[in-house]
Design a protein around this nucleic acid. Structure first.
Length: 776
DNA sequence: GCAATCCACGTACCG
DNA sequence: ACCGGTACGTGGATTGCG
């Protein structure tokens, strides 16, 4: 009987001059185990005509090696003979790689930059965040590498702990060499809540007690909010300075900075919830309190808040210190509840990509795709190309149609399902099937417009991976059909199919990313070329059967909803293009301006979709967005443009009036914009940069990535100089009401209202109502 | 001389 | 450190007109 364990974390040690992979797992009965495998050795490949014995001799002088052997592999699909060099110790690979490069006949060295534990998992098939089975001896040592079981459930009773530190910061940005940690709040999924509090400015003891707590609770998962960017580095530096041992790992070591800017705690999954939030575009302001509100785990009204720059004041004031402590606690609890919501998907993404749970969200999308590809490459005997520096090359992208402006009734929206992945499979578009212009071959696909050629067979690397992902997803969805939608297993498998889809859809972007090992501009360029041709042909067909095309973007078409004609369009695409197009939705009414990528539609069930307009943008004030939303609702909800025009006019005039009389909240006037660069790198002064500069002067920390919330205040100068951080605004009287009327409310409302003939004059109350009626 | 237009920069969005 | 296409605010430079 083998030992079944869920792989939580993996690392390795070098003992007695040879490496041992150490796997931390949880068994079916809930025991925490370590499985040690000393049987695996690091290796890499040398391409070229290299004499094995020469290589053996030269390499042995540099470091101990287990041996060299000539092996058959594939490189970009071509059968290739390679020299496989097996080293003894992982740290020696770096030196051996350099020696190997200069061997006579050596053309290239491959796969010499793969971390040892990743190499181990790839070669053995062991999958993190899933169940694996292993034969072990009495000492817990593996007799052979574990085998994955394909079981994607999460162990019951996973121990989860969230933590959050607050730091004394009288000068804005805290400095770990002098500013103490004043609170360390912890919250666990076992219900424990505790705040370890410093003694005045002495934090040594609080840190010690925190470490003791982690060791005694012994969490499997450690959650934080920006803990990779702040809490762990600060704690580590503080502990070093105070001489406190931060040995919170399961091997008694401190956390260490690791790949992708993530911090690793041996034997546990250190998971930064912020990494997940960072990837959710719907969330504009990513402070913990707002994110907790967004996910419905803690309402902002019922939590304690302390402005970050005032933390030190609350600490120094005995009457307010407990407020700070409650705030710290709320942060830890929010983090715990958020983390618990996110873990199921994170676990599945870890299982799909093969990246350990603690790394999967810290890693970039490109890195996730790449590790997935590395696994497939190994399974297919395909060698992984090296990463290389390349210059950026642009290429043509998707097709976007000029919309027909106005309000359209009864419009069908058709979407190609997984268009790019399906085109890649259909035309066998892949780095390894690509033919250089001088290469001769028969049986090729020639891409439209760009003329790139790809072999039709055998199936290429990307198409094989995509076919597999799609098939795995199909199987997963099939299993879902037999499960109770409210069961835990259903939730997990649903997250798994989402993860599979996400990875399939990321392949195209990966192929055009210059940082990718398998980068091939021609691949990305070909995919978009086929997509354009497919769209163009479908549009042509639609028109040929008298179906009006109203709009389209990349893989979607908006047509008049004439059911028989829509049906025949769907059939046409399936029969002539071999890929699926689906009737996604029908708008009872949909409105377009002259702009692409912007529309608003009323669905048959009464819901409204708004795409691209200011309403869905984070960089317009709430008031303008609310006005625009209302205008859209009025127009889409009305049968009579004339009546709608009257209602819109009346409504907008009312809002402008409220604004002029000061009957609005400052919060509704805030404009949020991200500092995409370090403030010093800007070529021009923009409103949000100016506001950021004011924030910095007031003691706030601002830098690349900061979201700046500002309002435009009165004064004679340009808008830019009048952008003031809203937190520094004392009263509504400072606000430049005219700016909000002229540059926010009226433009946002007019963008839509112009469609039904409303003029700016109407909204300002200058034109008479009669003039609109005349117009109509 | 001055308003209209163009352009670069910057951000956020769509698919 | 996934892609290209697109809209639009801001402010300065350029253009066009008389």
């Amino acid at each position: 009987m083998g030992l079944e364990f869920w792989l939580l974390d993996i690392t390795y040690t070098v003992a007695r001059d040879s490496p041992e992979v150490v796997m931390y797992g949880i068994t079916r009965s809930g025991e925490r185990v370590t499985v040690v495998d000393g049987s695996f050795r690091p290796y890499f490949y040398v391409l070229g005509e290299v004499d094995p014995s020469t290589a053996q001799r030269a390499l042995s002088k540099a470091a101990p090696i287990e041996g060299v052997e000539v092996v058959e592999r594939r490189y970009f699909g071509r059968p290739t003979r390679a020299l496989r060099v097996v080293a003894r110790r992982p740290p020696d690979v770096r030196e051996l790689r350099e020696v190997a490069r200069s061997l006579p006949g050596a053309v290239d060295v491959l796969e010499a930059d793969i971390r040892f534990y990743m190499r181990y998992m790839i070669d053995t098939g062991v999958l993190p965040s899933t169940w694996n089975v292993v034969e072990v001896d009495e000492g817990g040592r593996a007799k052979a590498p574990p085998t994955p079981l394909g079981d994607y459930r999460i162990p019951r009773d996973l121990r989860v702990m969230a933590f959050d530190i607050e730091v004394y910061n009288p000068r804005g940005s805290p400095d770990p060499s002098q500013d103490p940690i004043i609170t360390i709040a912890v919250a666990t999924n076992a219900g424990h809540r505790e705040v370890f509090v410093a003694d005045g400015k002495r934090d040594r003891d609080a840190i010690r007690r925190f470490v003791e707590f982690v060791r005694s609770f012994d969490p499997d998962v450690v959650l934080g909010y920006n803990s990779n960017g702040f809490d762990w580095p600060y704690l580590a530096e503080r502990a070093r300075k105070l001489g406190v041992r931060l040995d919170v790992s399961r091997s008694g070591t401190p956390p260490e900075q690791s790949v992708y800017g993530h911090w690793s705690i041996v034997g546990r999954a250190n998971f930064d919830v912020f990494n997940v939030v960072d990837e959710i575009p719907e969330i504009k302001v990513k402070t913990l309190d707002r994110v907790a509100e967004y996910f419905g785990v803690m309402r902002r009204e019922e939590r304690t808040m302390v402005p970050p720059h005032k933390i030190h004041e609350y600490w120094d004031d005995p009457s307010r210190r407990d407020v700070l402590i409650r705030y710290a606690m709320d942060d830890a609890v929010s983090t715990l509840l958020l983390g618990e919501k996110m873990l199921p998907f994170a676990v599945q993404l870890s299982a799909v990509t093969g990246l350990p749970l603690d790394q999967v969200f810290a890693a970039s999308v490109g890195a996730r795709v790449e590790w997935l590809l590395m696994r497939y490459a190994h399974a297919l005997g395909e060698l992984a190309p090296n990463r290389e520096e390349r210059p950026y090359e642009s290429y043509k992208g998707a097709m976007v149609l000029e919309p027909r402006p106005g309000i359209h009734l009864d419009v069908a929206v058709l979407d190609f399902t997984s268009m790019y992945p399906n085109l890649m499979i259909k035309y066998n578009v892949s780095p390894d099937t690509y033919l250089e212009p001088w290469e001769d071959a028969e049986d090729v696909n020639v891409a439209p417009e760009v003329g790139h050629r790809f072999r039709r067979s055998p199936q290429g690397f990307f198409p094989q991976v995509l076919t597999s992902l799609i098939e795995l997803r199909r199987e997963t969805k099939e299993r879902l059909r037999h499960l109770d939608p409210h069961s835990t297993e259903y939730l997990l498998l649903d997250e798994r199919q989402r993860a599979l889809k996400l990875m399939a859809n990321a392949m195209y972007g990966y192929s055009g990313w210059i940082g990718a090992r398998w980068y091939k501009r021609e691949v990305a360029e070909t995919v978009t070329a086929y997509a354009r041709r497919t769209m163009a042909d479908v549009i042509r067909f639609a028109q040929s059967i008298g179906l009006d095309v109203i709009y389209g973007d990349t893989d979607s078409l908006f047509v008049r909803n004439i059911p028989e004609k829509v049906d025949s369009l769907v059939r046409y695409v399936e029969e002539n293009h071999g890929i699926e197009i689906k009737l996604e939705k029908v708008y009872r009414r949909v409105l377009f301006t002259e702009a692409k990528k912007r529309y608003a539609g009323l669905l048959e069930d009464g819901r409204i979709d708004i795409v691209g307009f200011e309403v869905v943008r984070g960089d317009w004030c709430e008031l303008a967005k609310e006005v625009q939303l209302r205008v859209i609702e009025i127009i889409l909800g009305s049968d009579s443009p004339r009546e709608a025009a009257e209602r819109v006019t009346k409504y907008v005039r009312g809002v402008i009036d409220d604004l002029k009389r000061g009957r609005i909240q400052l919060d509704d006037l805030i404009i949020w914009k991200t500092l995409d660069k370090d403030p010093r790198e800007y070529k021009v002064l923009t409103p949000h940069l100016h506001a950021a500069n004011l924030l910095r002067r007031a003691g706030y920390r601002v830098g690349k990535g900061t979201m700046v919330g500002y309002v435009i205040v009165r004064g004679g100068e340009k808008v830019t100089y009048r952008a003031k951080p809203y937190i520094l605004v004392q009263s509504l009287d400072e606000v430049d009401v005219d700016y909000y009327v002229e540059r926010q409310i009226i433009p946002a409302a007019m963008r839509i209202a112009a469609i039904i003939g409303v003029t700016e004059g109407d909204l300002r109350g200058q034109g008479t109502r009669k003039s609109i009626l005349d117009y109509l």
